[in-house]
Simulated assay, not measured.
Amino acid sequence: MAKPNPLSLYFIVSSLSLIIACNADASKGNHDFSYLEDSSNGPTKWGSLGTQFKSCSDGESQSPVNIEAKKAKDQPYDLKRSYKEAPAKLFNRDHAITVEWQGDAGGIEVNGTAYQLFQCHWHIPSEHTINGKKYVESPSIYTHFVHGHDAEIHFVHIDGNDQKAVIGFLYTIGKADPFIEKLSESKLKAIDTNGNALGKISASSATSGSKKYYRYRGSLTTPPCSEGVTWTVADTAKSISKEQIELLKGPLDHGFKENARPVQELRGRTVTQFGDKE
Rank of each mutant, 00 (worst) to 15 (best):
M1C: 11
K3G: 02
K3Y: 13
P4T: 09
P4L: 09
N5K: 09
N5Y: 12
S8H: 03
L9N: 07
Y10N: 12
V13Q: 03
L18N: 15
A21Q: 15
A21H: 07
A24Q: 14
A26D: 05
N30E: 14
Y35Q: 11
S40C: 08
N41A: 07
N41V: 10
T44M: 11
L49R: 04
G50F: 04
S55N: 14
S57V: 00
D58I: 00
S61M: 04
S61I: 02
N66D: 15
I67Y: 00
A69W: 01
K80P: 01
R81G: 07
R81K: 13
E85F: 10
A86K: 01
A88N: 10
N92W: 12
I97A: 00
G107D: 07
N111T: 11
Q116D: 04
W122Q: 04
H123M: 05
H128V: 01
T129I: 08
Y135V: 04
V136D: 09
S138N: 08
P139A: 12
I141D: 08
T143I: 08
T143C: 11
H144P: 05
F145V: 10
D150C: 02
D150I: 01
G160N: 12
V166W: 07
V166C: 02
I167V: 13
G168I: 00
T172K: 09
T172S: 06
D177F: 11
I180Q: 02
K182W: 11
S186Y: 05
A190C: 07
T193A: 15
T193E: 15
G199S: 13
A203L: 08
S204A: 15
T207Q: 09
S208M: 10
Y214I: 01
S219H: 05
T221G: 05
C225D: 06
S226H: 06
G228E: 09
V229M: 06
T232L: 00
V233T: 02
A237T: 03
K238Y: 13
I240V: 15
L248Y: 02
K249M: 14
G250R: 15
P251R: 12
G255S: 12
F256D: 03
N259G: 12
V263S: 07
E265V: 09
G268R: 03
V271T: 12
T272R: 04
F274P: 06
G275M: 13
K277C: 08
E278F: 06
